[in-house]
Design a protein around this nucleic acid. Sequence first.
DNA 1: CTCACATTGAGAAAAAATTCACAAACCAAA
DNA 2: TTTGGTTTGTGAATTTTTTCTCAATGTGAG
Lengths: 195, 195
Amino acid sequence: MAVYLQVLEELEAEGEEIISSSKLAQLCGVNPSQIRKDLAYFGEFGVRGVGYYVTDLKESIKHFLGLDKTWNCAIVGIGNLGRALINHRAIKDKGYRIVGAFDWDPFKIGEKVGDLEIICTRRLKEKAKELNIQIGIITTPPNRAQRAANHIVEAGIKAILNFSPTRISVPDDVIVDYVEFSRYLIYLSFKLIHG
Amino acid sequence: MAVYLQVLEELEAEGEEIISSSKLAQLCGVNPSQIRKDLAYFGEFGVRGVGYYVTDLKESIKHFLGLDKTWNCAIVGIGNLGRALINHRAIKDKGYRIVGAFDWDPFKIGEKVGDLEIICTRRLKEKAKELNIQIGIITTPPNRAQRAANHIVEAGIKAILNFSPTRISVPDDVIVDYVEFSRYLIYLSFKLIHG
DNA sequence: CTCACATTGAGAAAAAATTCACAAACCAAA
DNA sequence: TTTGGTTTGTGAATTTTTTCTCAATGTGAG
């Protein structure tokens, strides 16, 4: 679905107003029926005999994916990875705003990263309400990840993205996703061995 | 498959010598038949009436995935993200070694990151042979990504991991994989909206 | 050695995902 | 208005994936 969105945005930028499922399928590298099934799943957007209106469809998918609003994120752990994410283009562009930078290290607190000031992790709860933070991102060293998660949960945030290579345990109503760099490398080396 | 491996490593650390497909399935959160099919796919490792020998199975999977040897990687683009990867634990632990750090910026060249010295990207080809680099990792800004890719291809490296939010074009015999942080965030916000 | 029990490997069955195929609907031109 | 050319939406057919089932095989006790 995210692939369709990306292609649709490119089409819109090129000034295309209407696209058929077969052309879109070609651009996405999938089967036309696949596209029609996927799109029919959350509404009827096409016009028979015509195709899909690029802008309308793009907006509908964005709405479906929740990309028509901005999401406020907090980063916990301001090392190299945290700083990289704060400055990362693609994240901003998709409607995700990093509005808080948290760390435990007293020497870092008060330091500026971009236009954010690093705040003590203990103040996460207070700041989460003030800044309406919906997603917490953990970029601490592994041994601090669980503590970071605890602070995030405590602050009432219901979604966590964990970059630290450790499993964390949270209540059932909190969604967690893991970014594992090694997975990508395993895929590549696997491909290098087997066709 | 990578999940099985992780669980097996934990089991081995706990001193377990034998595991049945049903127990392993429980730990991985999948169906026992699934496990047996997956494992049977690349050999017969189990013993009927007994189960699987944890260490043997772990080694077999590692071999299958190509994790029984070390892979040499080069990072092109030494910003925050590049530095984060160089220092990242999980990567080293899986047998991937970052052996080269490359950047275009003359002010960075010669600087030390961990025990690596930043080298000019133009010397990538020469260094790739010397260091036997098999995987190139792009962590440049988007507008430099294609140029980085060109240098990597030029150096005869056949696998690229691109962290930059741009598509790159390379010859057919070069494998490319993309790390898109926004995908993870989209998943989380989607889950926050729909169950 | 034989028997009772446990567990794999693999074929059969079931479920899920993908693709096909075509009626229904739309547009444009005559 | 009618006709011909498109393209969607959807039920049917197909393919793929997952799960079930059970004979084959191994262990250990008697």
